[in-house]
Design a protein around this nucleic acid. Structure first.
Length: 280
DNA sequence: CCAAGGCCTGAATG
DNA sequence: ACATTCAGGCCTT
């Protein structure tokens, strides 16, 4: 028997995991690789390109996942407040580029850069009298010059983006293989990409490679852990070193379990909302 | 193994 | 106005 699928689409889109989405008349339209998705408030999804998609992860046993991560009062509160918050299953290439761009940046600027990249390198598609630009294929970005990429406002990340795309076209990074690999193997591979450190790798893994045990530790999550979980995970220093990141991740998996990525998403959403940050 | 500094850019801050 | 700071890291020294 299957659970009834429910989702809070607004909160899920506005939770820092996707950037190329816009709302129009109660529908959300978004770019996911070579696909354009249209989703209504109830989570009914359609591909405007007639492609198959598992974007909404409808097969997840969300009840089980939520029960599994609900280890304490703090996380229970977050889960209750953002009950319909879900993690998407994005196009890996787009996700990788998005989070390479995200480093040392903010939502608005990430969004602006990605829009420019799509507009400059992606295929134009007109749907329902609206113009969309698909996300460019890896080959296109791999062939672009650094200065062309820089016109999208990505600055010093431009060479990273080009090299990352190149590694995909050369099959040094094979997303299909990584989808079927475990956490450590996947991370080891992703870390070979310039501009991909621990945090960015965890984002790519959680949001596009089906690694629900990935738990991106950015400055916000560190603050959250210090605020609510100082007993469970003592964090001594201000800047998290590589080693500390690994140790912390292990403790987090021990504590929140194999779906800890969901815990991250709920905690992150709750804390960010407290600060009334503007999203899309 | 750890700490410090630089990095594109543009919005926010003073 | 104009300068400075800072933002959901990463890389090099």
């Amino acid at each position: 028997m299957r659970n009834k699928f429910t989702i809070d689409i607004d909160n899920s889109i506005n939770s820092g995991q996707v950037f190329l989405w816009q709302k129009s008349k109660n529908y959300w339209y978004g770019i996911d690789g070579q696909n354009i998705l249209k989703i209504n408030q109830k989570g009914k999804i359609q591909s405007m390109q007639n492609m198959k998609t598992s974007f909404l992860r409808k097969n997840d046993d969300i009840e089980k996942i939520i029960k599994s991560v609900s280890r304490d009062k703090t996380i229970k509160k977050a889960v209750k407040k953002y009950e319909g918050l879900r993690i998407f299953n994005q196009d890996p290439f787009q996700c990788m580029i998005s989070f390479i761009i995200s480093s040392n940046s903010n939502i608005q600027k990430i969004k602006s850069s990605l829009e420019k990249i799509s507009r400059k390198f992606g295929k134009k598609v007109v749907i329902e009298d609206q113009e969309f630009f698909l996300f460019p294929k890896p080959e296109k970005i791999a062939k672009a010059s650094i200065s062309e990429i820089k016109t999208c406002g990505v600055g010093y990340r431009a060479p990273f983006i080009k090299e990352a795309a190149k590694m995909v076209t050369e099959k040094k990074i094979n997303f299909e293989y990584l989808k079927n690999s475990n956490y450590d193997e996947t991370k080891r591979n992703l870390r070979l990409i310039p501009g991909v450190g621990n945090k960015v790798a965890d984002c790519i893994m959680l949001f596009s490679l089906n690694k629900l045990d990935a738990f991106p530790l950015d400055t916000w999550m560190i603050k959250i852990l210090e605020k609510y979980y100082s007993k469970e995970f003592q964090i001594e220093t201000k800047t998290i070193t590589e080693k500390q990141y690994e140790i912390l991740h292990e403790k987090i998996v021990d504590y929140f379990g194999p779906y800890c990525g969901f815990a991250q998403q709920f905690l992150f959403k709750m804390e960010r909302e407290n600060y009334e940050k503007k999203w899309l």
